[in-house]
Write a protein that binds this DNA or RNA. Sequence first.
DNA 1: CCAGGCTTGGAGG
DNA 2: CCTCCAAGCCTGG
Length: 150
Amino acid sequence: MAIVTGSCRFGLWQVHVAWQDDLVYRVRFAREELAGPVPEEILRYCAGRPADLASLESVATEGESTSAGIYRAVRAIPCGQTATYGEIARRVGTAPRAVGSAMARNPTPIVVPCHRVVAKTGMGGFTPDVAIKEALLDMERRGRVCDTGK
DNA sequence: CCAGGCTTGGAGG
DNA sequence: CCTCCAAGCCTGG
C-alpha cells in the first residue's frame, strides 16, 4: 500500500494530509482542496467531533534528533491545554528558540499539536496563519474534540 | 559555515 | 509599561 494524499475542510482552510495506515508523513494548511482520503481521526478532529489523535504516528517523532524529542514532548501536551516554548525547551533540554524553529518546520501539524505551544507572553506564531492556531485552540477548549469517547 | 527563526529574560527609559 | 538586546540552539541552504 502506497502513501495516500487527500484533504478535509477546517473552517476556511483545507487540511492536506499525506499518510499510510497509522503513519502520517505530511500535514499542511492550504486554500485548495485535494481529492483523496484523510485518516479517520483527522477527519473527526477537523469536524469538531471526538477524535483520538494519539492513535496516529508522525514521521516527525522518529529518531533521536533534538527536533524529534521536541516533537514528542509537544505530542504529550494534553488536548485543550497549552505549554510555552520555554517549558518544552526545558523538558527536552534545549533552548526556547530551538523549539520555535522546530514548530515552524513541523512536518505534521495537528498530529504533532504545535498549535498548543504558545509564547510566554502571548500567542506565538503559526504558519501560514495564526488565525488557524487560535481556531484550533478555541475548538479544543470548547468542543468535544478532546473526548476520545473511550 | 552562517543566517535566521512560531523565544526569553534582563536592562534601561 | 515599553523598547532594545544578546544569549542560545538547531536547521536549511
